[in-house]
C-alpha cells in the first residue's frame, strides 16, 4: 500500500487521492470511492465529474492552443523535470524494481521528446502548396480540440505519458481516464502536470469504473477525439459506434507508437488561401 508505511514509530501522513479537474484536486462529486487493491481509496468518478472535466478542457483549449509552440515545449519540458524530481515516488508506485526505474526513465524521455516536437511539427507536417493560380496557399497543423485519453493499464505510467504528451504537444486539452486497476500513477501524474505551468483545465484526470465513464466520454458531443490505446477490442467497437454521434476522431495507433504521426493524429490540417497581386 503505497505511502502508508510506518517507520520508526512515525505515523505517516497518508495522501488522499483525488481527481484532477480544471486545475484542482477534487473528490468525486458523487462522494464515492473504490479500492482497486483492497486498501487505498480512490475516487470513483461519475458522469458528472466527466462532464465537468470536459467543460474545463473546452474552456482551456483555446488558450493552450494559442500559446507559442516554444512555450508549450517549455511547459512539457518542465513536466519532464517535475516527473524526474518525483522519481522515487513513482518508482515506489510502480513496484520498486528495475522495471520501475526503467519505466520512469521512459516516461521522462517521452515528455522531453515531445517537448522538442512542438516547434518543429509544422515544418515537418505543414506545407506551402504550389497552386495553379495567383494565390499564396499554406497548410498548417492545428489541435483537434478536446481529446479523451483512455490510458493503457500497462505500463501504467509510461503508457499514459506516451499518449498524453503528444496530445498536449499538439495543443489539445485532455481528459484522461486512469486505468481502473492501476489508477495511482495516473492520479500522481496529475500532480506533476499541476506543477508544470500547464494552464488549469488543459489536463484533467479521472479515476473510477471504466464502464461508468467510458460510454459517456465516447459519446460526449464536445469531445473531438478519443485515443483508445488502453481499450479492449470490445470497448473499441462500442466507442467507434458512439463516436459517430459527433464524427469524433478515434485514434487507434499502436500503444507503443512514438512519432510525429501520433501528434498529428490529434490534429487537423488547416489550409489558408490568399490572392497574390499588387
Amino acid at each position: 500500500m503505497p505511502g502508508a508505511k510506518n517507520g520508526n514509530g512515525r505515523v505517516q501522513i497518508r495522501k488522499t487521492y483525488k481527481l484532477y479537474i480544471a486545475g484542482e484536486f477534487v473528490r468525486s462529486e458523487s462522494g464515492r470511492a473504490y479500492r482497486f487493491d483492497g486498501s487505498v481509496n480512490v475516487p470513483r468518478g461519475s458522469r458528472k465529474d466527466l462532464r465537468d472535466a470536459v467543460r474545463a478542457a473546452r474552456g482551456a483549449v483555446s488558450g493552450w492552443a494559442a500559446r507559442t509552440a516554444m512555450n508549450r515545449g517549455q511547459i512539457l519540458y518542465r513536466a519532464a523535470e517535475m516527473l524526474d524530481g518525483r522519481r522515487a515516488q513513482f518508482v515506489e508506485l510502480l513496484g520498486s524494481g528495475r522495471g520501475a526505474h526503467k519505466e520512469v526513465d521512459e516516461a521522462v524521455e517521452a515528455l522531453v521528446w515531445y517537448a522538442g516536437w512542438t516547434d518543429k511539427l509544422a515544418q515537418v507536417i505543414g506545407a506551402t502548396n504550389p497552386v495553379a493560380g495567383p494565390y499564396f496557399n499554406f497548410t498548417i497543423p492545428e489541435p483537434t480540440g478536446v481529446v479523451g485519453v483512455v490510458a493503457p493499464g500497462k505500463p501504467a505510467l509510461a503508457g499514459l505519458v506516451r499518449r498524453v504528451a503528444p496530445a498536449l504537444c499538439a495543443g489539445n486539452a485532455v481528459v484522461v481516464l486512469a486505468p481502473e486497476a492501476t489508477p495511482l500513477p495516473a492520479l500522481t501524474l496529475a500532480e506533476v502536470l499541476a506543477t508544470s505551468d500547464l494552464p488549469a483545465g488543459v489536463a484533467n484526470v479521472l479515476s473510477g469504473y471504466r464502464k461508468e465513464l467510458l460510454p459517456w466520454l465516447a459519446s460526449h458531443m464536445d469531445v473531438n477525439a478519443i485515443d483508445v490505446a488502453g481499450c479492449t477490442p470490445a470497448e473499441v467497437i462500442d466507442i467507434e459506434k458512439a463516436a459517430a454521434d459527433n464524427v469524433k476522431r478515434v485514434v487507434k495507433l499502436a500503444p507503443n507508437e512514438m512519432s510525429p504521426y501520433l501528434i498529428t493524429a490529434f490534429m487537423e490540417m488547416k489550409t489558408v488561401w490568399h490572392p497574390v497581386g499588387v
Binding site: 506545407a127 502548396n129 497548410t139 473531438n224 464524427v247 488561401w273
Partner: peptide
C-alpha cells in the same frame, strides 16, 4: 481563429490538387 479546414481570405471557393481540403468537427476527417 476559424475552426475550419479551409480558410479563404479575400477569395472564396478556390480548389487545387496541391491544396489539402477537408473538415474540422462534424464536417468530417
Amino acid at each position: 481563429k476559424m475552426r475550419a479546414g479551409v480558410v479563404w481570405a479575400n477569395t472564396f471557393n478556390r480548389f487545387d490538387p496541391t491544396s489539402p481540403f477537408g473538415g474540422y468537427k462534424e464536417s468530417g476527417f
